[in-house]
């Protein structure tokens, strides 16, 4: 069964040149847990200027780091990446390949799965090793059920959400990174032309440590101004459940939920959100969850760590003032 022998390969992603993303470090931590004690964790990093990142990957849990530093691999091009990774993984032949459930991981791993004829499980919220191999868990039916999945091919691929793994503190520096053999990258049919970044203030939701979200009970666009103010104060981002997005009070890019963005910040503040499965499965893995809702029966309280029953119009201004005072101390 897939992944049974403790061989783990993590597809690394960069946050900026030379710096591995948070999910990459988490996956190395997860890889260590799955591989121990006799297994081996590999990190594979492709792109431009990626050699600088190899040291950090090694110190955060990779026994071996393989890299390919080439301009044709940055930004991510699915065909160029597949061309490099397919022979590499085919040679490995077994074990598990982990990537973040990110726009890159979601795109890359299914392609590799079909070209390597290996099973893939996406959007994993849990991975553990037992006597039968690896057990992957993932939400299905809009988060109304959790499926346990096994891969029946020797090589297994999985995209994993934030916070499933835990990044390890920097320790030793491992072996020298190994350059992958570079076949001439050649022409790709898919071409990435340009990249547009949204202003940081707009919604860097997935990476935010704090997310302040509003629901139907916000009553309109004005309500979201207050949430933005609170998010700014806490250095976080603003999210929304589906109704405010449908009503045009918040942009689509803010929607948190299984059909929007999946987030797992350290702190999630849900304001006037009742807690549909759809929404919960996009944020239930957050570190701490705070709910403010007028309705004491709202389901959101059952999945929160802290709660206030009350109208946000009365609760939030005082909360914001106090938070400002506390964070400026």
């Amino acid at each position: 069964m897939g992944g049974a022998n403790g061989k783990v390969a993590v597809i690394a992603e960069m946050e900026e040149v030379g710096r591995p993303s948070r999910i990459t470090l988490e996956l190395l931590g997860l890889g260590r847990r799955l591989a121990s004690p006799r297994g081996e964790v590999w990190a594979v990093v492709l792109g431009s200027g990626v050699k600088e990142a190899c040291g950090e990957l090694a110190s955060r849990g990779a026994d071996r780091v393989f890299y390919l530093d080439h301009p044709s691999l940055s930004p991510y091009n699915p065909e160029a990446w597949t061309r490099v990774l397919k022979p590499f993984l085919r040679e490995r032949g077994e074990g598990v390949v982990l990537a973040g459930h990110t726009p890159l991981g979601q795109d890359l791993l299914p392609r590799l799965a079909f070209s390597l004829e290996a099973g893939v499980v996406t959007d994993c919220v849990g991975v553990r090793a037992d006597e039968e191999g690896l057990l992957f868990t993932k939400p299905v039916y809009g988060g109304n059920a959790l499926a346990g999945v096994r891969v029946t091919t020797p090589l297994a691929l999985a995209t994993v959400r934030s916070r499933v793994g835990e990044a390890l503190p920097p320790t030793h520096t491992g072996e020298e990174p190994v350059p992958l053999p570079l076949d001439p990258p050649g022409e790709t049919r898919v071409l990435v032309r340009e990249r547009h970044r949204l202003e940081a203030a707009e919604c860097p939701l997935e990476e935010a440590r704090v997310v302040v979200s509003g629901g139907r009970g916000m009553g309109g666009e004005e309500g979201f101004e207050v949430l933005r103010e609170l998010a700014r104060t806490l250095g976080g981002a603003v999210g929304a459940s589906r109704p405010p997005v449908d009503s045009g009070w918040a942009p689509t890019t803010c929607q948190v939920g299984i059909t929007g963005k999946v987030v797992a910040p350290d702190l999630y503040i849900a304001v006037a959100i009742s807690g549909s499965s759809q929404h919960l499965s996009g944020m239930a893995d957050s570190g701490k969850i705070v709910a403010v809702n007028r309705d004491p029966e709202a389901y959101i309280f059952q999945v929160s760590d802290y709660g206030v029953v009350g109208d946000w119009r009365e609760v939030l201004p005082a909360f914001l003032t106090k938070v400002r005072e506390l964070v400026s101390e």
Partner: peptide
């Protein structure tokens, strides 16, 4: 190539 071995409410 994948097999669902369990299904539970969240």
């Amino acid at each position: 190539w994948v097999e669902t071995v369990s299904l539970e409410p969240p």
